[in-house]
Each structure stands twice: as C-alpha cells, then as structure tokens.
Amino acid sequence: MKKIIFSLVMLMCIFKFSSAEEKGLARIVKLQGLETYFLTEPLRSYEVVFEVGNGIKATSMLTGGLINEGLSEKMAQFVKKATKSAKKNGKSIDALLYSGGKRVVAIKFTEEATLENKGIGRVRRIQGVEVYALSEPLRDYNIVCKKNGGFKGKSALTGGLINNSMEQDLNQFVKGIMKKAKKAKSEVDAVIYSSGKSAIGIKFKQ
C-alpha cells in the first residue's frame, strides 16, 4: 500500500514539474522553411551570422500609409531577404531571431537538436502576459477573445514613409486584447498571433 501511495505522489510531482517546465515555452512555426523566433529566445545555443534590415514597405507607400502589412507578412519579407543574402554570400543559416526594433538577425545553431529543444523557444511577456507570436504554446488553452488590427496613425501621418516596428504592432494587439478582456470581465494568460491582422487572448487549462 505504501509503495502505491509513494508511486502516486511521484507521478503527481512529475506532472507538476512538467507543467511548470512548459510555462512560457512555444513551438515555433517555419516561414519558407526557416524557423522564426519572434520575441522568443531559442532553447538551443546559437551564433549570429548576419543582420537584416526591413527598408521601406511598398504597400504602405502606395496607399499613403492607409494599408500596412500584417506581422506575418513583414516577417516573411525578412525571411526572403535573409535567404537571398545567405545564398548570395555563401552562408548557412538555421533561423531568424527578432528581438525588437526594425531589424532581425540570422542565426546558426551551435547545439545539437533534440526532441526537447528543436523548434522550441521561451516567449517574452508584454504587459504581464505571455505573447506567442508566430508560435504555439506547448500547454493546452481556451480562447477568451479576439482582436483585429487597427489604424496605424504613424504610417498614415507620414504617407507610409514611417511604419510601426513589429514589436509596436504586437504591443497594440496585446493592449487591445487586455482592454477587451477587462470590458468582458474576463482574464487572459497569454496572447497568440498566428497570421494576418488579428490576435487572440487565451486562458491556459489547469
């Protein structure tokens, strides 16, 4: 009987430890075959190969700043430029890492991939909640609310010459989700952005 109780206690401890370990961890999506860590730190060690800037957005320019690309579209442009630059300069890269501003870095992993770390990263918190941009939480969750992207004042005022950074766009999503959840008297643990111009607020299952 004592052995059975001990085994049950051990299983409960392992389950709680696993759940705690998964907090803030995300599975990264690939764009054009390249892993994209968006405000997310890879679990594997890496080295920076080169940096990539974004430049002026043609869509924003043509519409006077009234229409801007979504975050996934902006990141896809970075991927395209990085892949082109790597091929041109004969360099090998494994992923792109975006930490803020209007530049990303192309990286090469220096640590062997395992089932536990391949394509996995730890996300950043914004306004107190975990933010999963172009990634999916490892934990199960329920959707609380949805927020569509709004009007970009900076871009419109400058005729499309100056646009928000991707981090600023994501901050607007988080702010909108938090406001919507508060109005509905609901709580959210995290925000997920997958594609397009909308994001969702979620609550993790216990």
Rank of each mutant, 00 (worst) to 15 (best):
F50I: 06
G119E: 03
N117V: 03
G119K: 04
G150M: 03
A199Y: 00
N89L: 05
P42R: 08
M61S: 10
G128R: 07
L34M: 14
M166Q: 11
I67E: 07
N148D: 13
K16C: 07
L62I: 10
M10E: 15
F15E: 14
E116A: 13
K182G: 01
Q206I: 06
V105Y: 00
K57C: 14
E47H: 12
K154D: 12
I5A: 11
E187N: 07
V48A: 06
S186W: 01
M166L: 14
F38P: 02
Q172G: 14
G201D: 00
I120Y: 06
G33M: 09
V129C: 05
G128D: 10
I143T: 13
G149A: 12
S18Q: 14
K205P: 02
M10D: 07
G90R: 09
Q172I: 04
R103N: 15
V174Y: 01
K88Q: 15
R125A: 12
L34I: 13
N117W: 07
Y193Q: 01
F17S: 14
P137Y: 10
F204H: 07
K197V: 03
I67C: 04
E116L: 08
A133L: 04
E136A: 10
S19F: 14
G149F: 12
M12L: 11
T40S: 13
L39T: 07
T83M: 08
E51S: 11
N117C: 05
A133K: 04
G159Y: 14
T63V: 02
K3N: 12
G119R: 04
L138Y: 08
T59F: 06
T59G: 02
S60D: 07
K182H: 02
F6L: 10
C13N: 13
F204D: 05
G33I: 02
G159A: 09
E130A: 07
A199S: 12
A199P: 04
K84S: 15
I107G: 01
R103P: 02
M75T: 02
L39H: 13
K30G: 05
I93Q: 03
I93R: 03
I4Q: 15
V49F: 12
K185F: 01
Q127S: 09
A181D: 00
Q32G: 09
E51N: 11
F17N: 10
V48K: 15
T36N: 13
F151C: 05
Q32T: 05
N117T: 08
I67K: 13
D189T: 03
K30H: 11
V49E: 13
S92R: 09
E22M: 11
G65W: 01
A76Y: 00
S165K: 10
V123N: 06
S18G: 04
G121P: 05
F17L: 14
A156F: 15
V191G: 01
G24R: 04
F173M: 04
N54Q: 14
Y193H: 06
K91F: 05
N142Y: 14
K91M: 14
N89E: 15
V48L: 09
K102L: 04
Y193T: 00
A184H: 00
V191D: 01
G33F: 12
Q206T: 06
F15N: 13
S194G: 09
E187A: 05
F6D: 11
L66P: 00
N163H: 08
